[in-house]
């Protein structure tokens, strides 16, 4: 009698869970909110990372050149302002400013988001890369210059590759933060992964499954990213064996 009751409870829970799964993800093809949201999240992250890397390296090179040689003073000050402003204001506010003020007549929301997150990430990447460049022994620059390489060539062939290797873990961390930070792009009406889950919640009046599904997907993405970076790190470390 007692065990039968337990069975009933378990049974009805399973039935409820199946219903719930069906309602949240299968009915009306609601899983598509997550799939297309995931696509948006990945596209924004990928391109923002690219912009962030390019911007970050440029800013880091300008600032470390100024630190080491005293050249590029004006450019370095401009870069300094950029870092102060971007790192001193919330990403959501930057995104809203980009959407409602800077690109007010621009209709591709996703492009606006990519630019906003790229510019945001660039500031953090710049400081990470600059610390990497400054950590390379000055003998490396001298060795490169004494062979006849110019400053830029020595940076490119000798300093940057070593700096990149040293800061890879910190860079990976920045991109993991960026991936999760894109979850604020619902603020400008973009349907990313987070917003996709939230839309399901508002349709089914059920928070548990859609939100946990979203969280799980982010978690998996970060774990995959972490794994990829550790493989890359191991490959770059061959010279230290």
């Amino acid at each position: 009698m007692l065990s039968g009751g337990l069975q009933n409870v378990c049974g009805s829970f399973l039935v409820d869970f199946k219903d719930s799964l069906y309602q949240n993800f299968i009915e009306d093809d609601r899983y598509m909110y997550l799939v297309s949201g995931l696509g948006t999240t990945l596209v924004i992250t990928l391109f923002a990372v690219l912009i962030g890397i390019v911007l970050g390296f440029l800013v880091a090179i300008v600032r470390s050149t100024y630190d080491k040689t005293g050249k590029l003073k004006v450019l370095s000050k401009i870069c300094g302002c950029y870092l102060t402003i971007i790192r001193g204001t919330p990403a959501v506010v930057q995104l809203l400013i980009m959407y409602y003020i800077v690109f007010v007549n621009f209709d591709s929301k996703i492009t606006v988001a990519i630019i906003a997150f790229g510019i945001n990430s660039g500031a953090y990447v710049a400081e990470i890369v600059r610390s990497g460049i400054m950590s390379i022994d000055k003998g490396q620059m001298e060795a490169g210059r004494s062979l006849g390489f110019g400053y830029a060539q020595t940076m490119w062939y000798i300093i940057i590759p070593q700096a990149f290797k040293n800061v890879l873990p910190a860079l990976a961390n920045e991109f993991i933060v960026l991936l999760k930070e894109t979850s604020i792009c619902g603020y400008i009406g973009l349907m990313d992964l987070t917003r996709g889950g939230d839309i399901i919640r508002s349709r089914t009046y059920e928070a548990f499954l859609p939100l946990f599904a979203v969280a799980l997907i982010y978690l998996l993405l970060v774990m995959i990213l972490t794994k990829l970076v550790s493989i890359l790190e191991r490959r770059l470390r061959t010279s230290e064996r």
Binding site: G144, L147, G150, S239
Partner: peptide, 22 residues
């Protein structure tokens, strides 16, 4: 100066080999 440095080799106290290259 870069073109002249090609003709002036230099060897350092701390070697300064490039550690990321063979």
């Amino acid at each position: 100066i870069n073109t002249y440095r090609q003709k002036i080799g230099m060897v350092f106290q701390h070697f300064n080999l490039f550690p990321h290259k063979t």
